[in-house]
């Protein structure tokens, strides 16, 4: 039964692939403690905790985090409503234009981000909308819809139609059925989709560059530090923070939807 055991080269190659995915992120952690401020010298000449204090005292970082959290929360809310509606419409029905609708949902992430970004910018210019919180949210919600949709549609397909019919037969109206039958069944999928949408929005930089005015979201702040580094270890501290903040919702989303087949 040799085919039941992986050959050594395959094991090594698979392990190598996973190491390639994870080791670079470990260096980000290491560099948050380095004493070297001006370069990326390896190995670090010494280790210190002072950069965490420095980062904590920086108002520009707090402002960026605040803006990112507000944007992510509002964009996720919009995406949750719109994504669930589309999922409910597309999950079990066949109708004219169904394919077109599902393409339209996927388009904002299928097309390169720069296309979405510059297209939104062209439209905002045309309508003379000032760049600010609103324009950032408009952009983010647009590409977050698909994440919620993906999670919700998988759950809607698993939700048995006879449950809804039973509720109706027992005299519940459509809203009661939604409140007491459908919502409890799709809640965890929505929670998972919402968390992924939140993580996506919190991290987005390509579209945001085009739709933000003078304000900086956290990724925009990081990008400017990457292009023109000021205090490199402080950037590392923020990077560590970002890794930890995105780690939790993704882990939670996984546990909420793990028995679904074909999750993304």
């Amino acid at each position: 039964m040799r085919s039941d055991r992986a050959s050594r080269p395959l094991k090594l190659a698979a392990l190598g692939g996973l190491l390639f995915l994870h080791v670079p992120l470990l260096f980000v952690f290491l560099y948050a403690f380095t004493t070297e401020e001006k370069s990326y010298q390896f190995p670090p000449p010494g280790l210190t905790l002072k950069w965490f204090g420095v980062a904590f005292g920086r108002q520009d970082i707090w402002d960026a985090i605040g803006l990112s959290l507000r944007v992510a929360a509002l964009a996720t809310t919009v995406a949750l409503v719109l994504g669930t509606l589309i999922a409910a419409a597309l999950a079990r029905r066949q109708f004219f234009g169904r394919e077109a609708v599902s393409l339209l949902v996927i388009l904002p992430i299928a097309l390169p981000g720069i296309v979405t970004g510059i297209a939104l910018r062209a439209a905002f210019n045309l309508m003379e909308i000032d760049y600010g919180l609103l324009t950032i949210i408009l952009g983010h919600a647009t590409f977050c819809i698909v994440v919620v949709y993906n999670n919700a549609v998988a759950r809607f397909r698993r939700l048995s139609g006879s449950l809804v019919e039973a509720s109706m037969d027992l005299g519940a109206d459509g809203f009661q059925t939604f409140r007491y039958v459908i919502l409890p069944n799709i809640a965890t999928a929505l929670l998972a989709g919402g968390m992924l949408a939140f993580a996506l929005s919190f991290d987005e930089v390509i579209v945001t560059t085009f739709t933000a005015g003078q304000q900086s979201t956290l990724p925009i702040w990081m990008l400017s530090e990457l292009v023109r580094p000021r205090q490199r270890p402080v950037t590392n501290v923020v990077a560590v923070f970002v890794i930890l903040v995105t780690f939790l919702p993704i882990l939670a989303a996984y546990y909420l939807t793990r028995d679904e087949s074909g999750h993304k």
Partner: peptide, 26 residues
């Protein structure tokens, strides 16, 4: 999870990690 975590973790942080790795003194 080992594939999902890097997929979802911050794009800029990932790029940044490579800047550390590939730098001349890195």
């Amino acid at each position: 999870l080992a594939v999902m975590m890097p997929l979802w973790s911050s794009y800029l942080v990932k790029v940044y990690a490579w800047k550390l790795i590939l730098a001349k003194e890195g």
